[in-house]
Design a protein around this nucleic acid. Sequence first.
DNA 1: GGGCATTCGTCCTTATACTGATGATTGCCG
DNA 2: CGGCAATCATCAGTATAAGGACGAATGCCC
Lengths: 169, 169
Amino acid sequence: MLQNSKEKRRVESTGEDWHGKPLQARPGFLIRRLHQIHVALFMEECAAESITPVQYSILTALEHMGTAEQIALSSAVGLDTTNVADVLARLERQRMVKRRMSPRDKRMKVVSLTETGRALLLRIDAGAARAHERTLAALSPTARARFMRDLAHLVEYNNDVSRTPMGLR
Amino acid sequence: MLQNSKEKRRVESTGEDWHGKPLQARPGFLIRRLHQIHVALFMEECAAESITPVQYSILTALEHMGTAEQIALSSAVGLDTTNVADVLARLERQRMVKRRMSPRDKRMKVVSLTETGRALLLRIDAGAARAHERTLAALSPTARARFMRDLAHLVEYNNDVSRTPMGLR
DNA sequence: GGGCATTCGTCCTTATACTGATGATTGCCG
DNA sequence: CGGCAATCATCAGTATAAGGACGAATGCCC
């Protein structure tokens, strides 16, 4: 059932007794809560423009890639293709993004930022930065850096979990 | 707009340049991904029973509290009351949970575990534990403990962000 | 070059999550 | 005791997220 290319070591039971512990001691619970909190902070800081963290991720990825097929975007932001299509439809409705059929491969759609989208990114930047900083504000700069390193490590290690086609790169 | 009882210090701009950095260097992105990953691992480990992490959280909270009004559950698991009602409706449909009007206060509903729900919790325990351990598997035991401490600290610090009525206690 | 597995986008369904609004009930204050 | 603000659950609406299925297009293999 595992069989990843990386061939993970078996998770040997550390005998950790999650059952007895309160929710607050469980990784899954805390991660969900922190995610919730960051989204709330982001929405608060960016209330002026109506944009969500995921939309921001997609716009940012698009800015870096210049132009991309939906499947590439899906891989870049770690989202299901279904979900990417969904978010892109909303972004297109708001004129942040353009989609055209690829002339090379008629199965694909090529996505690119519009001027409106590029302008939005610039307006959003400061708010997004504040949201990120407030999310980590409780930690000292040292602890913050360490936490980010661990976080990146955890994500990279299990990067191929979930539907994301080729895993995230 | 902030004005929490705690009176947070202003987030002084550390001048962090998130804009130039790739998504992988942004806290929000990594937190979302890790959440995604944990959910996927949980679903994989608990595929036998059809249950989600949030449903598991609610059942667990209910087990600890014995019996509770929806508003108390909402506070315990850090979810919107709307959302709690939603999840409870699904759990009730699967006979995991009972809801009755409170005789004391006819606005409230009292929720409790059924035998089916209690049995499910026992069956799920090992899988949930494996999911939690796999989520953190990339870190050494030392780093894992430190990461959990930081995570708890971050959540506790911003606990009152989001709609959750009284904040989580 | 004709079949056929693969790929890409989309549709349908289900489950979190939050906001805003509403209806029922309660407790409090005069 | 009569009104009125606050509380609790719910409803409607929107946005992530994933799974399953499907049609169109592609490319590869014989």
